[in-house]
Nucleic acid binder design. Sequence first.
DNA 1: GCCAACGTTGGC
DNA 2: GCCAACGTTGGC
Length: 160
Amino acid sequence: MTERRYWLMKSEPSDFSIQDLKAAGTACWDGVRNYQARNLLRDEIKAGDGVLFYHSNVKPPALMGIAEVVCDGYADHTARDPGSAHYDPKATPDKPVWYMVDVAFRAEFAQPVTRDALRGRPELADMPVLKKGNRLSVQPVAAKHWQAVLEMAGVKDPLD
DNA sequence: GCCAACGTTGGC
DNA sequence: GCCAACGTTGGC
């Protein structure tokens, strides 16, 4: 068995929030239209991996909880839906171009772990999300960072 | 709402 | 293949 890996996924809560995921139980992480993030979804992110759910474009931006990836990457069908905001005519049945995974709700932090709080921890200084100008909506999280964030949130790892 | 950062597009 | 113009992200 390969080792579990960890990821951070951003969402604007007005679009899809941790509460939405909690209510849904499981959801498609669709609509990612960036090639670097696409490559992660298609090639790297696997069922069983852990996800830190991040709310972006709100005050304060913060980690809100934990999800688990429940399937490997597959074609993002919204790319082939002309009615979708994420429609992309480049996508065909043979060449989907864009990929997504399904994620399942695992925990909501009692208190969000804000970006500022993350910044206050020297051991988290090299988390990509804290770097200026970082726009990647799906990013890797080191195991030690995962553990540190869960400690800050005061939760036991729901994936253990 | 502003704007810095950065990805994408398209003319050449 | 270069790079200017343009669009988007996302913190502030």
